[in-house]
């Protein structure tokens, strides 16, 4: 998930849940506000661990948005029509914008943008591992919109009620923009499914490659998620990994039926007793391999980000030089 930080143990976080010197009355007031579904705002007192968890989660969510521009950005120059090109440009631009909303929210917690970027580029911060897979053809663009954005929406809606105000408000903005992302992907696939056999085969192949990866986006099973409890108590995580994953499967199966694609899971079956779809086992071995840096595109993604940052240095410096020159000019004119 874009918010994978919550689901995955963080070896670099040596912070105890509650610091020994944090005053009990402040902790109580803090917890009481969260329990009453209130919001914590930037200047409010908060436990150090709450601050650190949020900085990590929000910044990694931001990094995910920005790195997420790459797999789809790959196809902008090769979109099959002007309409699809314009749509893809708008979507990728939105993802950049979402990253900026989230960096902005993270910075309210007392961390600088420069620090966050450095954490990403040196590999100390993660981004959602779904972006470590390649987009092989145009059908992948549609499948990403339908399934990857679809999974993201499932996770992001409860985050609109996150206890930390700036993050919740950023999520509300993001959710408003996100539904176009899923719809454009689904409509793209509908168009292909109504086309030639080769196009239909291309869509099915893309679904086969992406389906299981999208299910893994929701993070390890609840039984293996040691760190969720504290996040739940602090109103950061609202719904468990398994529950979100189940909601996603239940919502997606009917969508696949309308599209006319088969989801690549022989165990996928409606269970009338549970009132949900049963589904097969996820390959967690492969998931952890990718999270830990050994996926197909990890090196390429990070390399691209580093290059963009370094190649763009002259723009950052130039803008500052221009601003300085304008200020000096204004001062001279006023003198």
């Amino acid at each position: 998930m874009y918010t994978q930080a919550l689901s995955i143990p963080d070896p670099s976080a040596k912070v105890q849940p509650i610091q020994p010197d944090e005053p009990a009355d402040k902790l109580e007031a803090f917890q009481a506000r969260i329990d009453a579904d209130g919001r914590i705002e930037p200047q409010d007192w908060m436990p150090e661990a709450y601050r650190k968890t949020l900085i990590r989660q929000i910044s990694q969510h931001a990094h995910s948005e920005v790195v997420g521009m790459l797999p789809e950005g790959n196809w902008i120059t090769r979109a099959p029509s002007l309409k699809r090109k314009a749509i893809l440009l708008a979507k990728v631009q939105d993802e950049g914008g979402h990253g900026l909303y989230l960096y902005s929210a993270a910075e309210t917690l007392g961390v600088s943008r420069a620090e966050l970027i450095e954490q990403l580029l040196t590999g100390r911060a993660k981004y959602s591992s779904i972006f470590n897979y390649p987009t092989l053809n145009w059908a992948d663009v549609g499948v990403i919109g339908w399934l990857v954005d679809g999974a993201a929406i499932m996770n992001q809606i409860p985050l609109c009620r996150c206890s930390y105000g700036p993050y919740a408000r950023a999520m509300i903005r993001i959710c408003k923009e996100e539904s176009f992302h899923q719809r454009q992907g689904y409509e793209l696939l509908l168009t292909m499914m109504r086309g030639s056999q080769a196009q239909r085969d291309m869509v099915q192949d893309a679904v086969n490659r992406w389906w299981w990866k999208c299910l893994a986006m929701f993070g390890p099973p609840d039984s293996a998620s040691v760190h969720s409890e504290q996040s739940m108590r602090w109103g950061i995580k609202r719904i468990s990994n398994d529950e979100l994953r189940q909601k996603f499967v239940d919502a997606t199966v009917p969508q696949a039926e309308v599209l006319g694609v088969t989801l690549p899971d022989p165990k996928l079956k409606w269970n009338p007793e549970r009132g949900h779809y049963d589904f097969g086992e996820i390959d967690w071995e492969e998931f952890w391999q990718t999270v830990n840096g050994h996926g197909p595109c990890n090196k390429e993604r990070l390399g691209t980000r580093i290059k963009a940052h370094e190649d763009g240095a002259w723009v950052r410096e130039g803008a500052l030089a221009h601003a300085r020159k304008q200020r000096e000019r204004a001062l001279r004119a006023a003198a």
Partner: peptide, 26 residues
């Protein structure tokens, strides 16, 4: 700008990118 190869990969910088002066926050 040169990026010497490191165990993590050919593109990973060996030290942190020098902190650039941030544009101010608005």
């Amino acid at each position: 700008m040169s990026n010497p190869a490191t165990p993590e990969g050919a593109n990973a910088p060996t030290k942190a990118t020098p902190a650039l002066k941030d544009w101010p926050l608005w």
